[in-house]
Design a protein around this nucleic acid. Structure first.
Length: 260
DNA sequence: ATGGTCGACTCTCGA
């Protein structure tokens, strides 16, 4: 079996007390992290190596930052879309290959507001991703695109969709931009196993009791090509890390595959 | 009701 998880940690250094015990318990083959908020010089590699994980990372001070940890060799590491990236895009996109599976880990820009320039940049980001998939991959190969995508694709993916129709993570334009890139060749793996509404990966910690009151969003995703979808055995949300005393807003989303 | 709480880092911003 091959297991993969994705987790927006909101500072990898501040979340080690949650992340390391979680990895020791679940022993996933790969975990993709977002918002590590740390430069490469001071990334806490030893914490991963000490529990048997290799780790690749790309970050910047204070904001963004992505990492991939694996119990297996991490090959063909690349950052950003191409050689012309600024530091921001490089710290939002990290890709590699593990056990013959191509993995693209993204922290998609949040967008701030639908009338803010960052939202146009966010919409473009999905088109740039589609171009990357066109250039570097094939829908016929074993490919996983996962991470904090900052988009709730359908009304059932957000509590109270009516009041959030102008939110940058649910607005019609961002859902269409995401859908265009998804149709390059991806299946939303969580929905393959859990069609029921009201399943969320993110609970804002500025809202008291958001987990208990179900005030969440499904904005973290594991998208896979058909060859991976057919061999998937499960995809689930682990709420436990979100229930810690000092949690990230995000839960852990994880999947298992039978690659034999 | 336009709040609330984190994290990094400068006394403010992004989420």
């Amino acid at each position: 079996m091959f297991s993969l998880a994705t987790f927006n940690v909101n500072s990898v250094r501040a979340r080690l007390h949650v992340l390391i015990p979680w990895l020791e318990r679940h022993q996933v083959d790969v975990i993709c992290l977002q918002e590590t908020k740390v430069t490469d010089e001071v990334f806490p590699q030893d914490a991963f190596r000490d529990i048997g994980y290799n780790v690749a990372f790309k970050g910047q001070k204070s904001y963004n930052g992505v990492a991939i940890a694996s119990r297996h060799a991490i090959e063909d590491v690349a950052v950003g879309f191409d050689g012309t990236n600024g530091p921001v895009d490089a710290s939002r996109l990290l890709r590699c290959r593990v056990q013959g599976v191509s993995i693209v880990n993204t922290y998609v820009p949040q967008g701030r507001a639908i009338d803010h320039e960052n939202y146009a940049y966010k919409l473009q980001w999905f088109d740039r991703l589609a171009a990357l998939f066109d250039a570097e991959y094939s829908p016929a190969e074993d490919l996983v695109w996962c991470g904090d995508l900052n988009v709730a694709p359908k009304p059932e993916d957000v509590h109270d969709p009516d009041s959030h129709r102008n939110h940058v993570c649910f607005h019609e334009a961002v859902r269409q931009a995401f859908a265009r890139t998804r149709t390059w060749g991806f299946e939303d793996l969580f929905r393959r196993f859990h069609p029921e509404p009201g399943q969320y990966t993110f609970f804002d910690y500025r809202r008291r009791g958001s987990v208990q009151r179900g005030l969440g969003w499904r904005i973290d995703h594991i998208l896979v090509t058909p060859s991976m979808a057919h061999r998937a055995k499960d995809c689930s949300i682990d709420l436990q890390p979100r229930l810690e005393t000092k949690p990230s807003d995000h839960t852990v989303l994880m999947a298992t595959f039978d690659l034999s």
